[in-house]
Design a protein around this nucleic acid. Structure first.
Length: 193
DNA sequence: GTTGAGCGTT
């Protein structure tokens, strides 16, 4: 229930139609050209982009497909949604975000649920429990999804630094002297044996 | 083949 004249940017259940499709649930091994070979049969493609995690170089499991015109995008959405690709059933829908985050979100102000009120139900561990270990990995994503940001570009570095502090191991014992291409920058608990 | 749920960098 939104009031006032708020810009309709859509939500996940009801995204605005357009030329840009979001493709989700991708295999980590599906790349731009894989997507292109699927989606190009519905029309002329303007651009394709599987989102890559800069840190790890891995796909984040979703991407965006830009068509030249809306009709082709609409058809592609209907035809390709639920299709199996590289062993995964992909979800295709209109993208709620039009472009990549050109100016970064800004400084992180706080999670909207930082102050639960009386009567709130603590149903999801992911929302309220900060103490977990394994789920810390998903914390980044939650921050982007649910956190509040001030859009102030000059805070961008500050934002990045704070974000990175969640990722790097602060322990000097694991720090290496020089970066090596064969060694990944992981915290010790992220290693698997 | 690094899971899962996930809307983005240049």
């Amino acid at each position: 229930p939104m009031s006032g004249r708020k810009r309709h940017i859509g939500d996940r259940l009801n995204p605005p139609s357009g030329k840009c499709l979001g493709v989700f649930g991708l295999s980590l091994y599906t790349n731009d050209s894989d997507l292109r070979s699927v989606f190009s049969r519905y029309g002329r493609i303007a651009d394709i982009n599987v989102v890559i995690d800069q840190k790890t170089g891995r796909s984040r499991g979703f991407g965006f497909v830009y068509f030249d015109n809306d009709d082709d995008a609409a058809e592609a959405k209907d035809r390709a949604n639920g299709m199996e690709l590289d062993g995964r059933n992909i979800r295709v829908d209109y993208s709620i975000t039009k472009r990549a985050h050109t100016p970064t979100p800004g400084v992180y102000v706080g999670r909207p649920y930082a102050k639960p009120r009386d009567g709130d139900r603590y149903e999801s561990r992911d929302r309220y429990d900060r103490g977990g270990d394994r789920h810390d990995r998903h914390y980044e994503r939650d921050r982007h999804d649910r956190g509040r940001y001030e859009s102030r570009d000059r805070y961008r570095d500050d934002y990045r630094d704070r974000r990175d502090s969640y990722r790097r191991s602060p322990s000097p014992g694991y720090r290496r002297r020089s970066p090596s291409p064969y060694y990944r920058d992981r915290s010790p608990r992220d290693r698997y044996y």
